[in-house]
Design a binder for these strands. Structure first.
Length: 404
RNA sequence: GGGAGUUUGCCCGAGUGGUUAAUGGGGACGGGCUGUAAACCCGUUGGCUAUGCCUACAUAGGUUCGAAUCCUAUAGCUCCCA
């Protein structure tokens, strides 16, 4: 094991908050491997880069010789985490949760070291709990304490409903820490309250409290809101290499350093060199972004996929060539009596536009191309001869379809 | 249990009987410039083979020549009292 100082340097890098930092040092000084906890709610079947942030940190812990306990929140997911939400989350069925959990684990293992990872389901102890046990735990918290939580305060003040069961979420998450005897619990900054609840509960139940370690939230590809599937600004860990490349290229320059630090496989020293080069202007943001995209694809797919995705990107966006793989669509091209076909309808049927009306607007806006040629405004009905097998319809820069 | 208020398009938010899918902003999308970045400029933002037709301002009825706007009931939400 590395020295405590060296461990601290690696562990603290990129973190948002460690509460309390001094106690983390004390735990490390004992020399025994620590038990690092991360609870994940399998509310959606796949992970995105934002989820990868704490996983990356945990991997660093593992590389330092510590152990990780990954808690699949099949129990807590039935409550729905109120964190960062201004409304009650929908409660999920057990089947959905189980299915999601399976893919969740396989994706997490692309980052974590399986040898040093224990996976547990908190439903295993949550569901069999009787009212007696629940009350014993819940009685350790006061309503005032739970209401302190920012999300609840805001919702209460903005007259947004808070359902009673939502109060149980931090309580049950805290209980997880007791059950697995966590030394450190990881989470995003929005998890701080939940993590501190764990500290409190452990202490009240006569245990050494865990350390709360939060990671900054990673903003999505818009660079503004946190990465989230519901905002549509996410880079999914299972995204196809081409998508992963494109999405990475679309992040704002200001986010490059953060993405490297929180989500890439680069070491702390490498990240710091990149940060410095961006700060003094010697680093080319465009090239750094490309390199970042390659790094991500290499992690979640392979180096070969990364190279292929990059080549494809250049082909489509630098040279304005057609992509290699274009989905084929079978459309009814039967011309009307005047020898024309309804282009707006075709675009809709091909899935390139949500409605024929939208397709018309796209045509008028110059966003529709046939074999690379822009279609003139108002050409909703076009000569049937223009469309034959192999013809490529394009909407915007990235939506293509080839006629079967 | 009683009372008051509120409910508009993806989101916020104008609009209190009378041309009009309904001001404005955000977001999103398309075009230009670029590096699928930012900034900036332009356009679009209910459906429909469309100089028109249909559906829309929580839901269902009603008043009226005419309703997002008035009335009634129902539902959701919020607050106050108990």
């Amino acid at each position: 094991m590395l020295s405590v100082d060296e461990q601290m340097r690696i562990i603290t890098s990129g973190t948002a908050k460690i509460v309390p930092e001094a106690d983390l040092r004390k735990k490390l000084e004992k020399g025994a491997p620590l038990n690092i906890k991360l609870g994940v709610d399998p509310t959606s079947p796949d992970l995105h880069l934002g989820h990868a942030v704490p996983l990356r940190k945990m991997r660093q812990f593992q590389d330092l010789g510590h152990r990780v306990t990954l808690i699949i929140g099949n129990g807590t997911a039935t409550i729905g985490d109120p964190s960062g939400k201004n409304s009650t989350r929908p409660q999920l069925s057990q089947e959905q949760v189980e299915a999601n959990a399976a893919t969740y684990v396989s994706q997490a293992m692309k980052i974590l070291d399986p040898e040093k990872t224990t996976i547990v389901h908190n439903g295993d102890w949550m569901f069999p709990m009787g009212l007696k046990e629940l009350l014993a735990v819940a009685s350790k918290f006061t309503v005032a304490r739970i209401l302190e939580r920012d999300d609840f305060t805001k919702r209460y003040q903005s007259q947004t409903p808070i359902a009673l069961h939502e109060f149980l979420y931090p309580v049950m998450q805290a209980y997880d820490s007791v059950k697995i005897e966590a030394d450190v619990e990881m989470g995003g900054t929005d998890q701080l309250f939940n993590l501190l609840a764990g500290r409190e509960l452990m202490e009240k139940m006569g245990m050494e409290p865990q350390i709360a370690l939060t990671m900054p939230l990673l903003e999505g590809t818009d660079g503004v809101r946190k990465m989230s599937k519901s905002y549509g600004n996410y880079i999914g860990l299972t995204d196809a290499p081409a998508d992963m490349f494109g999405k990475t290229m679309s992040i704002p320059d200001e986010m490059i350093a953060k993405y490297y630090r929180l989500a890439s496989s680069k070491s702390i020293d490498e990240v710091e060199a990149i940060e410095a080069s961006l700060a003094d202007g010697t680093g080319d943001p465009y090239q750094l972004k490309r390199a970042l995209a390659r790094d991500l694809i290499t992690t979640y797919h392979s180096a070969e996929h990364a190279a292929a995705a990059e080549a494809e990107f250049d082909r489509v966006f630098k040279e304005n060539q057609l992509p290699e793989d274009i989905a084929e669509v079978s459309l009814d091209l039967t011309p009307g009596e005047d020898g024309t076909v309804y282009l707006a309808g075709l675009l809709k049927d091909a899935g390139l536009a949500p409605s024929a009306g939208e397709a018309r607007r796209l045509i008028d806006g110059g966003g529709v191309k046939i074999d690379g040629e822009a279609v003139a405004p108002k050409s909703y009905n076009i000569d049937a001869a223009l469309l034959k097998s192999g013809t490529v319809l394009q909407v915007g820069k990235r939506k293509f379809a080839r006629l079967a």
